[in-house]
Design a protein around this nucleic acid. Structure first.
Length: 325
DNA sequence: AAATTTGGCAACCGCCCAAGA
DNA sequence: GTCTTGGGCGGTTGCCAAATT
């Protein structure tokens, strides 16, 4: 194994122009057949690994310097959606750019840009989950029933808002039960638009979110004998949400073990697409006069807390208390 | 003007893998 | 099959300059 530079009394930290020159001269003269031997040849008190990194990330003559172009930015986003944090693979599509440079650009700029556009940089999906919902939930629930209220177009009744919140929460919980983390579904590259400014936001309905959670071993029978157990787990999980309704049975035909059609269920719930109606996705001229201001959006009134909402429904009381704990 | 915070980026660290002995 | 070595990779750190208080 390689010993550390410190152990060998080798220099670490920023490179001086003199060191850079020695390295460049040496590589031009001898090439870099062996990085281990190169420091000796160059007269550098550095480890071979440090020389290699300095060369590949900074001194290489074909390195492109300067700001990333819009086109490069688009390519990085598209490739990241496809490949994830495979920086070297992404770099291979961008001549002159190093993996380190792309990684830094992603972490310091693009991640934030995507977040500002309401897109989760890890999944490249719109942030329709609890992280988006929770800050606005009190407003969803406190909005009046006036037909002119903007949130009226988002959630037509407090009942729907509460139901939506629960569906999303259950979806997330089920996903956690499944994998220990939230599901990061693959989306094809073409779903990301060429420019961030007009990023086409794919709509994942609350029902889709829930269905993802339900794609769990816990609810998927491995053998015929498991079927009843899995069905019961499913019903148990959703029971508190739909305690006062017959929706659980509507959603799944227990006898056939088939779930209802996603889009139909969504329609049945009568909850419009949260994403397309969100402030992030509305242009200025689309914005209604009574739209909730950015300040209000990030600092919603505290009269209805999440806890209030969840505790409000007597039938769900025990279950949601457990969730909050 | 000084102190503090924030953001960008170069460089390092530790892990992994492939090749060769 | 096992060990060693070199090189590659992604994640993280720490420095420095710019921005903010």
């Amino acid at each position: 194994m390689e010993t550390t530079a410190e152990e060998n009394g080798l220099k670490k930290g920023p490179w001086t122009p003199e060191e850079d020159q020695k390295l460049v001269d040496c590589i031009q003269k001898y090439g870099h057949g062996s990085w281990k031997e190169l420091p000796k040849l160059a007269g550098l008190n550095r480890c071979g690994k440090s020389c290699r990194l300095r060369w590949t990330n900074y001194l290489r003559p074909d390195i492109k310097r300067g700001a990333f172009t819009d086109e490069e930015e688009r390519v990085i986003i598209d490739l990241h959606a496809e490949l994830g944090n495979k920086w070297s693979a992404i770099a291979s599509y961008l001549p002159g750019r190093t993996d380190n440079e792309i990684k830094n650009f992603w972490n310091t700029r693009l991640k934030k840009k995507l977040l500002r556009n309401g897109i989760d940089p890890d999944t490249h999906m719109p942030r329709t989950h609890l992280d988006t919902l929770l800050p606005v939930l009190p407003q969803l629930l406190s909005c009046n029933s006036s037909r002119t209220h903007t949130w009226e177009s988002v959630v037509r009744s407090q009942e729907n808002a509460a139901r939506l919140a629960k569906i999303l929460l259950v979806g997330n919980i089920l996903q956690l039960l499944n994998s220990g983390t939230t599901v990061s579904p693959h989306i094809p590259m073409e779903t990301i638009s060429p420019s961030l400014g007009s990023a086409r936001v794919m709509s994942r309905t609350p029902w889709d979110s829930l269905m993802m959670g339900l794609q769990s071993e816990r609810f998927t029978p491995k053998a015929e004998s498991d079927t009843l157990t899995c069905q019961q787990s499913f019903k148990d999980a959703l029971q508190p949400v739909f305690q006062n309704t017959t929706e659980t049975d509507n959603m799944m035909d227990i006898n056939s073990n088939k779930f209802g059609e996603s889009s139909n269920m969504y329609t049945d719930f009568d909850i419009p697409d949260l994403v397309s109606a969100s402030p992030v996705c509305l242009s200025k001229d689309q914005e209604p006069n009574n739209f909730i201001s950015p300040d209000e959006f990030s600092n919603p009134p505290t009269t209805n807390t999440m806890e209030d909402i969840l505790m409000d429904d007597e039938a769900s009381n025990y279950y949601w208390k457990q969730v909050l704990e």
